[in-house]
Amino acid sequence: MAIELKGGLQPMTELRVYEYDMVAIRSQMTAKLAQAPGFFTGSPLLIDLESVADQAIDLFVLVSWLRSEGVVPVAVRGIKGELESQARDLNLAVLRTRRGAERPANTEVVPTEPPPSSPSRLVLQPVRSGQRIYARGGDLIVMAAVSTGAEVIADGHVHIYGPLRGRALAGAQGDVKARIMCQSLESELVAIAGCYKTAEDLGDGWKGRPAQIYLDGDSLVIQPL
């Protein structure tokens, strides 16, 4: 076996552009790079252009300058049409917008069948310390314990039919409606769409009690099941 493809979750810095003004961008970015030299050099960067979708952007100028500063842009988000082909010419991946569904500008809205339901991933064995399971595009259901030091992640909901002692991250791609359910909340850290609470925030009161966790606006709510 020469290669293996593994789904992974890599942390990446995002460069959110709020105004396409190369002078301002250059000056702000240079200051940042000076603050932490080496931090950005060689690190993968995601360029988010959602906020400037209506402005005229020259992606080539922006990316060339970033590359000359040693930054490694790897993907762009929040662009459409012409910019998409610019991005591909620059060998950048094009990601969906932050809010989820893509809204292509030039195509008509054609009524389609509802999308097939996301597959859920079922795990029957205990998730041991150091193991990480990511259910891409769907829910994750674990029929055993999740040990401390383990990570269970899903784009959808996370259901643990056992004690949750490790980390649980639901709505990993930004789905704010995702929930975490478990039979005993003893977790190190829980997060939904990026909002998280650590074990300290959760307190000891949940140990042994079935709980569900969901997002209410910007804060995580924990309720008994």
Binding site: R128, Q131, S147, T148
Partner: peptide, 13 residues
Amino acid sequence: VRDSDRILGLLSS
């Protein structure tokens, strides 16, 4: 115990 748990994960994978 935690380290043994880690080892169990490696043994099963």
